[in-house]
């Protein structure tokens, strides 16, 4: 069975920490930084469980600031 590997790259400076990507992720990959903030003072999103990402792009699709790029590899 094919295995899907995904990853996201988040433009941390553009992120406003709205949390919608975190909620949208079906595999609980993303979280907001607990302490660190970007230059605008937002707790930006990051991959907390990178290995769980399936590259479905749900996070990027709902991101209002278009700050998420999604990558996906299907390993056969």
């Amino acid at each position: 069975m094919a295995k899907i590997h995904g990853a996201v790259v988040i433009d941390e400076e553009r992120c406003k920490g709205c949390d919608l990507c975190v909620v949208a992720c079906p595999t609980n990959v993303l979280l907001l930084k607990d302490k660190e903030v970007n230059d605008r003072g937002y707790h930006y999103a990051y991959m907390a469980q990178a290995e769980a990402c399936i590259g479905c792009a749900a996070c990027a699709t709902v991101c209002p600031d278009a700050c998420i790029e999604v990558y996906r590899v299907v390993e056969k």
Binding site: H5, A60, V70, R72, V73
Partner: peptide
């Protein structure tokens, strides 16, 4: 290995 332009499925328009 995953984060490679060839594997990009979603990007900022």
């Amino acid at each position: 290995q995953i984060i490679n332009p060839a594997n990009r499925v979603y990007a900022r328009p």
